[in-house]
Design a protein around this nucleic acid. Sequence first.
DNA 1: CAAAGCTATGTCGAATATGACATAAAGGAA
DNA 2: TTCCTTTATGTCATATTCGACATAGCTTTG
Lengths: 107, 107
Amino acid sequence: MKESKRRRLEAQGWRFGSAKDFLGLTDEEAEYIELQLSLAALLRKRRESLGYTQTEVADLIGSSQSRVAKMEAGDPSVSVDLLIRTLLALGVNRKQVGRAIGAAASA
Amino acid sequence: MKESKRRRLEAQGWRFGSAKDFLGLTDEEAEYIELQLSLAALLRKRRESLGYTQTEVADLIGSSQSRVAKMEAGDPSVSVDLLIRTLLALGVNRKQVGRAIGAAASA
DNA sequence: CAAAGCTATGTCGAATATGACATAAAGGAA
DNA sequence: TTCCTTTATGTCATATTCGACATAGCTTTG
C-alpha cells in the first residue's frame, strides 16, 4: 500500500495495526477497505440517481439518516453487510454489486 | 422466491419474516442470502484447492474451526464481512470476490 | 440577514456477530 | 472394531455494529 493512500484512508478514520491485529496482511486490509469504498460510492451514486435524500433511504431500509451518511462516507463503523443490503433495497442487483466490488474505488 | 427454495433456506437456519422485519422485500432477502451462499461456496472451494483444513484457515485468520465451518455452511450467524475478509486472507482478490457475488449460488 | 433542507459527525444503549469451547458426527486407517 | 483426523452444531461471554438522537456544517431560498 502506498503511503499516500494509507494517509488518505487513515484520515477517514481507519486505523492500521500490525498484521495480526486485523485478518491477514496489510494488502488485504487495503483490498477490504477499497472494496467498502467502492460500495459506498455506488450507494451514493444510486441514491442520487434515484433523487432520494439520505433520510428517505433511511426510512426505506428502517435506519437513520446518520447511518446512511456514514455508509456513503465509508465510515469504519459500517459493515459491508449493511452496504450490500441497502444497495439491494435500492434495486441494485447482485451482479451490479459484484461489478462494483471488482472495480477499484474511485474516491 | 420459489417455495422450494424458501424451504431449503429455512432448513439451513434462515428465518423469513414479513417484509419490514428485514430490509426491504422478500426478493432482496433472497438476493442477499444467495450472495452469501455464493461466497460460502467459494470459500470452501478455495480452501480445498489450497489443501487446508478448517482449523488451518481458522489459525490463519485468528478465528476458530467452528466459525470456519459455519462460514462454509452459509450459517446465518456469519456476516458477509467475515466471509470476504477470509477470502481475501486466502489470496482471493477483489475481482474474484466480485465475480462470485455476481454469480448464482451453486448449492 | 434568517429560515429551511440536506448532509456530516459524535455518542449512546441495544442488538447482532464474534471467537472459544464442548461435543457430536462422519470418514479413513490400522 | 478402535483410534485418529476432519467437519458440524450448539452455547456463551465479549466485541462490534446497529438505530437513534443531538448537533454542527453547508447550500439554497426567501
